[in-house]
Design a protein around this nucleic acid. Structure first.
Lengths: 213, 213
DNA sequence: TAGATTGTTAATCGATTAACAATC
DNA sequence: TAGATTGTTAATCGATTAACAATC
């Protein structure tokens, strides 16, 4: 994982995830090598773009051959932090929180989920894949001991900003935000990744409405 | 909703959703007017960008005054298809499907959910907010009667491509894709909006891993 | 009126694509 | 070897930002 001078754009990073997805699929099918041309065909990108994206992180290919699927897969996993032993907690075990607890493939991203927390007594104690939901007090205690790398924020909209600020005050430096709310001021030093479902559907609806006209 | 000659970029459309979110918040707080400068401050965009984004869809502001919050909110809802009476069905009532059925604010996007479908007999018949999950056969019958505008695809990865193709063959022209898979060839005429959770977490992990170095 | 702020045109910046020498 | 395909440099394209006349 050799990093070069300039840094890749956010769009480029997101494409790496997409490439990784396709590479895993190819690996599963026993495909050994792939060229930027073929990968681009499959995913709708130009060969140039793929080579540019990859080359900003290292020399992964071989001239006249292309890329070895398995080894490029491993390199992309490295870049995307799979081997960085990152830890996370989940805050808010409502519906979306539960869905993540029950189903999300954290291993696939190399993230170890340390715990889940909620304020609702009816939910506290419930167990999902070996993780029992704990109380707010437990969360605060936990954070004094060790701050995980990532907080997955799944609390209701109304508690979103408050909870986010609380977590950041206690040392959290990255948030995976499911609250459909802008939880922190722009340019805050916290690394923020938003999953805004309504934004996504509204974008789709815009194009659908346009197409219907 | 006056549309001008050139079309807005995808990024621009996505920002409109963000603006809309903030405008709703301001409206709730009783704020009557807003300038591109103030809105930009709140969301981390330059005033120029906001004016550019908006002006590609119409003249919504007033010189020397700014924008009226309520009326801009309404205009953005129009652009984002809220008043286009779009319809949708949900296919695959597993965990994420259920979470959407139980919680997603479809009204907020102006989308009417017509039905939900699954192959699992254990799930068929279950009701969520007035919508009973129906069988695959029911789905096919429904599609011969009337094709909804959007299919929300929540089936397992393994059934993703097959189900998507099935739906498209029967007339579906837009898919909100929750399967974490590339379900259709690039450049297909179907309008596709992907919600790829793992891509999102991997992107976050990349930045977190970088920051830890 | 003077100050504020729009919509738009022009300038800048960054990202994508094309081209090509290097070389497996 | 000849053909294929990389990594990289240069050219193009598009998106963001700055500037400003118009005007409320």
């Amino acid at each position: 994982m050799r990093s070069k001078g300039f840094r890749a754009s956010d769009n480029s990073i997101r494409r790496l995830s997409k490439y990784l997805r396709e590479l895993k699929e190819m690996e599963k099918r026993g495909i050994e090598k792939v060229s930027s041309y073929v990968l681009g065909e499959r995913l709708g990108h130009t060969p140039s773009q793929i080579r540019q994206d990859l080359s900003s992180f290292g020399d992964f290919g071989y001239q006249g051959y292309g890329y070895n699927v398995s080894s490029l897969r491993r390199s992309l996993e490295d870049i995307l932090g799979k081997n960085s032993e990152l830890t996370a907690i989940l805050v808010g075990a409502g519906n979306i929180g539960k869905a993540l607890l029950e189903n999300f493939p954290f291993d696939e991203c190399g993230v170890r989920l340390l715990g889940a927390y909620d304020v609702d007594p009816a939910v506290i104690g419930t167990e999902f894949r070996g993780i029992a939901v704990q109380s707010q007090a437990d969360l605060d205690e936990e954070l004094t001991l060790k701050v995980p790398d990532i907080a997955i924020l799944c609390v209701p909209k109304t508690a979103a900003v408050e909870t986010a600020e609380h977590l950041v005050e206690r040392g959290i430096r990255a948030i995976w935000n499911y609250t459909n709310t802008e939880i922190l001021p722009p340019y805050s030093p916290v690394i923020l990744e938003n999953v805004h479902f309504t934004d996504s559907l509204q974008t789709l609806c815009h194009y659908v409405a346009e197409a219907k006209k």
